[in-house]
Simulated assay, not measured.
Amino acid sequence: MMACAGGQPGTDAERPVLFSVVTEPIVCCPNDPDDAKTLSDVAGAKIDEVFIGSCMTNIGHFRAASKLLEGKKDMPVKLWMAPPTKMDAKQLTEEGHYGVFGAAGARMEMPGCSLCMGNQAQVKEGATVMSTSTRNFPNRLGRGLLVFSAISDGTQS
């Protein structure tokens, strides 16, 4: 699979990315979906809030988050979660993941767009956010934010 990063098709800034050779996660930096860097390039950035949700997440992302959060309390960031569908929310509840999220202090939003579109809730003004939403445009998740976008390739289940 191949994609372009860092420019418009046909320009000198266009760079092919072979996902088969990507060795670490890639994030899009605030607030430009074309400003892609490796996770190690942005390590140390202060993150205030995290959003796991949007139509690009799948139930596997929530299961993985549950595994990471098991037994955790007093998270150093505010964690927002919104499964994409009511069916996912029901399945995650039945599997016990909502209990893990609640115990860890996550804020569970209604399934759907939620924070991704800033239409049900918004993060704290001026925060720096790591988000699984598909876009990190200015003011999308709230006012005056810096938003890193971390989107999976969708192969998790």
Rank of each mutant, 00 (worst) to 15 (best):
P84G: 15
G6K: 00
K67R: 13
N58D: 11
D32Y: 06
A104K: 04
R107H: 14
P25R: 09
V77T: 03
M110G: 09
S114Q: 14
M130P: 00
L145V: 02
L92K: 03
V77I: 11
G144R: 01
K78N: 04
M81W: 02
A13D: 14
N136V: 02
Q91S: 10
F101P: 04
T93W: 15
V17R: 01
E24C: 06
M81C: 04
P33V: 11
F62V: 05
R143P: 14
T155L: 10
A36G: 09
V147D: 00
T134R: 05
L145S: 04
N136F: 00
K90E: 11
K78D: 04
L146R: 15
Y98T: 11
D153Q: 13
K73S: 09
P76S: 06
A89F: 12
S152A: 13
P25L: 05
F101A: 04
V42Y: 04
K67P: 02
A89M: 07
P33H: 13
K46V: 11
R107D: 14
T85S: 15
P33Y: 08
R107C: 15
E24Q: 01
A65N: 05
R140L: 14
V27S: 00
S66H: 05
S54R: 02
P30L: 04
T57Q: 05
A45I: 01
F101Y: 09
A5K: 10
Q122K: 09
R15C: 06
S20E: 14
S133T: 06
D34I: 08
G60N: 07
P111G: 06
G112N: 00
C116F: 13
L141E: 13
V50D: 03
C55Q: 15
V27W: 01
G142I: 12
N119I: 05
A36C: 14
L146P: 15
E49I: 01
A121G: 10
P16N: 10
F137P: 02
P30N: 06
Q122A: 14
R107N: 13
K78R: 13
E14G: 06
K90S: 15
S54P: 00
K37V: 07
A150D: 05
T134W: 09
I26T: 00
T93M: 11
A64Q: 03
H97P: 02
N31Q: 05
S157N: 15
T23W: 04
K86V: 15
S40N: 03
V27K: 00
V50W: 01
R135Y: 01
E70V: 04
E70I: 03
L141C: 01
I52G: 03
F101L: 04
E125K: 13
T11Y: 08
Q8T: 14
V129Q: 11
F51W: 05
F19Y: 10
E24L: 01
N31L: 04
A45Q: 09
A13Y: 11
V147R: 02
M117P: 11
